[in-house]
Amino acid sequence: MEFVIEATDLTKKYGSLVAVDKLDLKVEAGTIHGFLGPNGAGKTTTLKILVGLLKPDGGSVSILGQELGWDNPDARSRIGYMPELPKLPKHLKGRELLDIYGRMYGMSKEAREKQVPKLLDMVGLKERGNDLTGEYSKGMQQRLGMAQALLNEPELVILDEPSLGLDPVGMVEIREIMKEIAKEGVTVFLSSHLLHEVEQVCTNVTIINKGVALASGTLEQISAKIRGPLILEAEVDKLSKTVIGKVKELPFVANVSKDGKKLFVEVKTRDDVRSRVSQAITAGGGIVTSMNLKGGSLEDVFMGLLAKNQKEEAAK
């Protein structure tokens, strides 16, 4: 397995406050890895260490196979970073800013002329590229922040709360962008406190609280750790043996049981398989009247872990 981020025993203190506490973090190449934690958990602090804005008090970090020393522009040239609520120079126009940042990446004129309009278009700022960033709304600044993180076609993109301050459409767009770049082989590491966001876009997740990693792994592993299997509960008219047989044939189904009109399908995947299950039911002659996904969401996992963590702390 190839890791693009490997941090061991990472520690960062602000005075006496330990913001990041012996954190171990491994981000696998090609994944969309969520860094999930409540406010003040130490997410931003960790990300800032990864891009060289903060110096850790202990532990080691390697990024893209390179030991991250202090002020290492080489490592940064392969990373894109979007800060939390990015603050961009107000006196520059969106297009100018991207162009200048592009120069800082050492991009050629042709590369900049190709990338800048493409990215402005991608984040929905095509019409506003010639306006000063100081005149942008909060969400527009966030979008430009996303664009500047993708300028150099990075191998690793580090995003600090990418959907903060975005409208629902913007949130969906940002998620689409993340999925899009991941398809091209880019590793995406994003912090978030939005569980459903992580659940929707991430393949992997690390949960952090008070600077300590509580759990880390693929979304399925994390979920499985805490709760039982995911159950799809369907109400079916004309629920016959044939229907159950058809559903059982699906590759991701672990178990099927019934209770009157209710059909319980235990699935082994985190993918949304509702339509495939309902197709199988229809193929068997049944009629689906309702369908629900049961078994905790990531939210249940998260709350469960936090509660456990708090209990352990209290016991100490």
Binding site: V51, G52, L53, D71, P73, D74, A75, R76, S77, I79, Y81, P83, P86, K87, L88, Y101, M104, Y105, G106, G145, Q148, N152
Partner: peptide, 9 residues
């Protein structure tokens, strides 16, 4: 923050 995250020493 965004400035020093660029690959310029």
């Amino acid at each position: 923050v965004p400035l020093l995250a660029k690959p310029v020493s």
